[in-house]
Design a protein around this nucleic acid. Structure first.
Length: 687
DNA sequence: GGGTAAGCAGTTTTT
DNA sequence: CTGCTTACCC
């Protein structure tokens, strides 16, 4: 890869790489070598003598950031200690960390993910004497996000939710915690309020790049803009309006228009040559996306030519579908010499991956799921993380309440309810109310609880957390051994006897307990790996917590080798595979029913939602290099009952002549295949 | 006051 | 099927 020299770039690509000064807008169609252009551009800057510390590259996902960094590293063969390549969120986190006091936070603040957020919203509803069964928590959480990021305002009939929001915000402050939205809004507020601080950042980052620009939200745009120095700043944004698929998260591809307005002197470059897909696949993609309105004009073309027809299959049900995919993979491996990592199986939702997973397991097909319930969301992991969080930040009530009785230590709901009551009344955290209680008792006052045992349990609990606070934060090496977070964590797990807890919880199911415990061991090994990473110069408790708060997927090592990639379409963005399966191309899934019927979305009209779904389908198609295989079930089991399905309306937008229909229920192995298979088998046996 | 068993509702995509 | 809440029992 590092062998590629600049003259392998085409004209617009070269232009994009060389245009370092001034604002640049790059419209990069799918598969047009966008990542390469960005990496070369950064490498070019470094060659010109621009210091690493002056460059800021903002991406959308951790995966993209990591990928970009390694690519630049390979290309330049330099150490990149001072180059900032990060997601908007972790960039924001850094600013907050540096300026915590200004925001009224202590620097050990916790970061609440979506689950923590929902828990806290529940608490807030309870505090406002509202029944959370009548409220869609998920929806309310999104509403809060919209309010916080300025995408929505309270209307008069907000049915008391404004009070809940205020309560929620207040609680965050007391707990010394921030949510994901705060990671963007707080830095923006800071920089807007403190001109000299903004100036400081502007002087530092003189060259800014934004990847996946179509997926930036208004807040992110404003954050980028305040970091740039006027309309002739050295800022380069790269995006493709046709691949904007995150509007539900506040992304707005019209930011491209904003950019054009704010930087009138920009250089605009279009990358339209597709290096990825065959003409067949590209034709299909182009036809589909042409049904959208208000696109930027662009004509993607491919020099690859021809290609095999797109395969379309209508399985009876989801089991059939999964078996078909599995057998098709086996077949292609034998017939066309494909490797497992040549395949990507894409679904609209995470849950759809389940069936396919089962088929892969049954057929012994190695696979890797990206997406799905994140490793860090698993209960056993969240429990341990909650301990660590509470140790770092004792006011973190969400974490405290999660683990105060896990494993069981005889602190029940009545106790917790009274603690909560006391905390709310005094506007302090639960931890502080326990301390206050202890204090009052020590002065001979009547405690809240008559029960001496409960008091003792509470005292033991706080003493336990305190002892680990000392252990984990004061980095003394014990007996000459270097201090290590991982070994502290191991001690923690031992001391709370989490293993005993797992066994008692899963009485009959020891396998499950074992599996969960192995997850914890894996978690600790992750800490170890991180500690021994030479690029990591601060391996303390806070940095670790900050780090994992921003990672959702376990994008550990790149051991994709020899594995089929099973993922959602969203998670597949930026990836490419020789062979792509799109499973569940059915009405109601693609486009998804919840976006098709634009109920509560006042802002975006229905067409906008349909168009986004079409873009999603477009993204899925354009992941494929050689072969595209689409399946659409006739029937599908949804929750308990099976329902009839019809094909996705988008399928009709693919020209018929590009499609080949599968008749048979599953690809039967013909004699040729069987022979070849036997040959392979023999050669394997010989080894 | 705390733990357990039956009963019930249910996830679009991600930082 | 699963995970979570509630109601009930110790």
């Amino acid at each position: 890869m590092s062998k590629i020299s600049a003259n392998t770039l085409n004209d617009p690509q070269t232009q994009a790489v060389q245009a370092i000064e001034g604002p640049v807008l790059i419209i990069a169609g799918a598969g047009s070598g966008k990542t390469r252009v960005i990496t070369f551009r950064i490498a070019h800057m470094l060659e010109k003598g621009i210091p690493q510390s002056a460059i800021l590259a903002l991406t959308f996902t951790n995966k993209a950031a990591k990928e970009m960094e390694t690519r630049v590293k390979h290309l330049t063969r330099r150490k990149l200690q001072n180059l900032t390549v990060s997601t908007f969120h972790s960039f924001g986190l850094n600013i907050i960390r540096n300026e915590a006091e200004l925001l009224g936070y202590r620097k050990n603040f916790s970061i609440y993910d979506e689950t923590d957020k929902i828990t806290l919203i529940k608490e807030s509803l309870r505090e406002c004497r509202m029944n959370f069964h009548k409220v869609d928590l998920f929806e309310l959480s999104q509403q809060f996000s919209k309010i916080k990021t300025g995408l929505a305002q309270w209307s008069n009939d907000s049915s008391g939710m404004q009070a809940v929001y205020d309560e929620y915000q207040h609680a965050l402050k007391i707990y010394n915690a921030v949510d994901f939205d705060d990671l963007l809004t707080m830095p923006l507020e800071l920089l807007e309020k403190h001109g000299e601080m903004a100036q400081k950042y502007r002087q530092k980052y003189r060259y800014i790049m934004v990847d996946e620009f179509q997926d930036t939200s208004l807040i992110q745009y404003r954050l980028m803009k305040i970091l740039t120095d006027g309309s002739c700043a050295n800022v380069c944004v790269v995006g493709d309006d046709d691949q904007s698929i995150y509007s539900w998260r506040g992304a707005n591809y019209e930011n491209i228009l904003l950019f054009e307005k704010d930087f009138p002197g920009r250089l605009e470059i279009k990358l339209e040559q597709n290096y990825r897909s065959t003409t067949t696949i590209l034709d299909a993609a182009n036809k589909v996306i042409s049904h959208n309105t208000g696109r930027k004009v662009k004509k993607l073309w491919s020099g690859k030519g021809g290609g095999k027809p797109i395969e379309l299959f209508y399985p009876e049900n989801e089991t059939d579908e999964a078996n078909f995919i599995a057998s098709r993979i086996k077949n292609l491996i034998i017939m066309e010499d494909c490797k497992y990592h040549d395949f990507g199986a894409l679904t609209r939702t995470n849950s759809l991956a389940r069936n396919i997973e089962e088929a892969f397991l049954a057929e012994n097909i190695p696979y890797r799921v990206s997406g799905g319930t994140s490793f860090f969301q698993r209960k056993e992991i969240k429990d341990i993380i909650s301990y660590m969080r509470l140790i770092a930040n004792q006011n973190d009530d969400v974490s405290l309440l999660r683990i105060i009785n896990t494993p069981r230590r005889g602190i029940g709901k009545t106790t917790i309810a009274s603690l909560n009551e006391m905390a709310r009344k005094n506007r302090i955290s639960v931890w502080d109310s326990i301390s206050r209680m202890n204090f009052e008792r020590s002065r001979g006052q009547q405690g809240l609880f008559g029960d001496q045992r409960t008091m003792t349990e509470l005292e033991e609990f706080t003493a336990f957390i305190e002892s680990f606070r000392t252990l984990m934060l004061e980095k003394q090496s014990e007996q000459g051994k270097p201090w290590k977070l991982s070994s502290c964590a191991r001690t923690l797990v031992d001391n709370i006897d989490y293993w005993g807890y797992l066994v008692s919880e899963h009485g009959k199911d020891e396998k499950k307990a074992r599996w969960k415990f192995s997850n914890i061991e894996y978690f600790i090994r992750m800490i170890e790996n991180w500690e021994s990473d030479p690029d990591n110069y601060d391996s303390g408790l806070y940095p670790w917590l900050n780090r994992i708060s921003l990672i959702t997927r376990d994008d550990g090592e790149d051991d994709n080798e020899g594995k089929v990639n099973l993922s959602t379409i969203h998670a597949a963005k930026g990836l490419e595979f020789p062979v792509v399966f799109i499973a569940g191309a059915e009405k109601g899934l693609i486009p998804h029913e919840r976006s098709a019927s634009g109920e509560e979305n006042e802002n975006d009209n229905e067409a906008g939602n349909i168009e986004e779904e079409r873009r999603l389908f477009y993204v899925a198609i354009t992941r494929a290099r050689e072969k595209l295989i689409i399946t659409s079930c006739k029937k599908r089991r949804h929750m308990q009952n099976t329902a009839d399905c019809s094909p996705s309306p988008f399928l009709e937008e693919i020209p018929k002549e590009l499609i080949r229909y599968h008749e048979k229920e599953s690809e039967e192995i013909d004699e040729d295949t069987a022979d070849k298979f036997m040959e392979q088998l023999k050669s394997i046996i010989k080894k």
